[in-house]
Amino acid sequence: MIPASFEYKKATSVQEAISMLGSEDKILAGGHSLIPAMKLRLNMPTGLVDISKIESLKEIRDNEKSISIGAGVSHATIANNPEISKHMPMISEAASMIGDIQVRNVGTIGGSIAHADPSADWPGVLLASDATVVIANAEGSREVDIDQFFTGFFETALQDNEIITHVRIPKTAANANSCYVKFVQPASRFAIVGCAAAVEKVNGSVKSIRVAFNGVGDNAYRATGIENALKDQKLSAENIGSAASHATDGIDVMDDHFASENYRSHLASVFAKRALSRL
């Protein structure tokens, strides 16, 4: 598997990386999606800007009301962070389920969301967590609400010459009561269906709720039908079951070699139920 030739550029800072980025270049972080695509010549960038050695992208910072995870932090590091596990268990859970050990040790959260594979775990989980994506560009930096970040099939709000620096996840009561469940595609171990849910309950009733899916549609999405059905309710097997039937409302459900549209829709409801039953 031989990629087309490309220029390799190693950046030591985010600003340097931005200045290095040519119009046909790609950013190399963990490389776990990019390199295979290049080996298959599905992707033939003229240059790779390697940001994997930029230390500032590898920090996990506790901001009192939120946790910032650097774009270059590996899935394994996230999975093993005790603060993340305490304040936002679905983040740890998702990180520990990505790919295999090799992928978790090298793949990064920033790389994953920039690639925006609809079956990847991070997009759904970050949607459920109400995260903010912080992006650097030549002018400085900007913030994008996660709800506005994923714009389509492998498409994001990221512009040319921009680099994700970190994602910021609030330490909300909902995130403290969250989980991620996943039905894996047996070859790649991407999600056929991934469901992340975060629920804040006050006096037993749902005060706030975010439920999101990846693997189901051509983009990760929030299942507002489920959220609306359960808002202000006391969770029960019955109302979870009936809410879960809204898992794919308004969604163009994917149909592929591993799961038909019908089966995938069914699984989305099953996994919504399984996630919510834990919370």
């Binding site: 295979p36 298959l40 595609q185 047996p186 070859a187 790649s188 070699h257």
Partner: peptide
């Protein structure tokens, strides 16, 4: 898990480890 799948036009549609499920120890 396994099985090579050709579509009607004769393309092998699962000719990679992303698509062809090989057994692993944890299976």
């Amino acid at each position: 898990l396994e099985g090579a799948v050709y579509d009607e036009s004769g393309q092998l549609i699962n000719g990679s480890y992303m698509d062809y499920a090989m057994p692993r120890a944890d299976d």
